[in-house]
Design a protein around this nucleic acid. Structure first.
Lengths: 144, 144
DNA sequence: TTTTTTGCAAAAGGTTTGCAACACG
DNA sequence: CGTGTTGCAAACCTTTTGCAAAAAA
């Protein structure tokens, strides 16, 4: 999966981050968070396991779940078969529906839209989060 | 899954719609499209099968895939375990992260944002589609 | 009649669960 | 020491594939 990030890999104090989120510091958790910190791109359980073969796949699934619950990671929907996670920064993606290349971008000014949506909604008073992904055909595929 | 639609169920000429999209008119396809037309909400293979027990689950999967390819349906990501599809109208959702209730809305003015994104992108010149879902806690859950 | 679609059985792929051994705090 | 976490095996659930029979054009 070719991926063009919107920003450089963040510097994370792994141990500190885990403690802050109320998680015990264990070797698998440190290693898995390190991978996300270094790669800064969406990853599924299998792609992490490929880099950390000594860690059981089951542990990776459990770690991803607990990281998501405590807010370290977030799920991303890229219209792929498995669940992808990434560091919980505010950014979005453009996915090429032909070759699958992904480009990230940070700017996303949908405050106004969010406000409008809340005003129109009878059941929601506030909104915590949103997912926004664009799908198109990249320049290279357009030419081919 | 409680669902509040943004619009009334559309009136669809099932046979015509199938032919228009270049699909053969078969009983399973007519029935499955009827379900979407009547319910007007996101559904997965299992929920359709629950209503159409005489149709094999495999046929439902294959039908959903072909409906998506020809543009009758689109995938929606609701952060659930299975793949949900809905009629390919332009609308979005607010999902309650506590009880799972879903509210749909139609207005979505992100043309400007889309243009901005394309201008900033070095790899994409146009964008065909976007997914936009909001996540929050509904009023009822807030009180509970 | 030719081509596509369906149903059944079986397999595949991703993810979860049970439980004993182990490690963190 | 007590509780949370890991690894292994096995189960589970959703989705896909192969193939012969049935149906559409």
């Amino acid at each position: 999966m070719i991926y063009y990030p919107a920003m450089k890999s963040p510097t994370i104090d792994i141990k500190k981050e885990l403690k802050q989120k109320g998680l015990r510091v264990t070797t698998p958790r440190e290693k898995i968070l390190s991978v996300f910190s270094a790669e800064c791109q969406p990853m599924n359980a299998e792609s992490i396991h490929a880099q950390l073969k000594s860690i059981d796949l089951v542990t990776i699934y459990r770690t991803l779940t607990s990281f998501e619950k405590c807010g370290i990671l977030r799920k991303v929907d890229l219209h792929k078969d498995s669940t992808y996670y990434e560091l919980n920064h505010h950014h979005h993606h453009i996915v090429c529906t032909s070759c699958g290349v992904i480009e990230a971008f940070e700017s996303c000014d949908i405050k106004k839209l969010t406000q409008k949506v809340v005003l129109q909604s009878s059941r929601f008073k506030t909104i915590q989060d949103h997912s926004l992904e664009f799908f198109g055909v990249c320049k290279i595929c357009l030419k081919g």
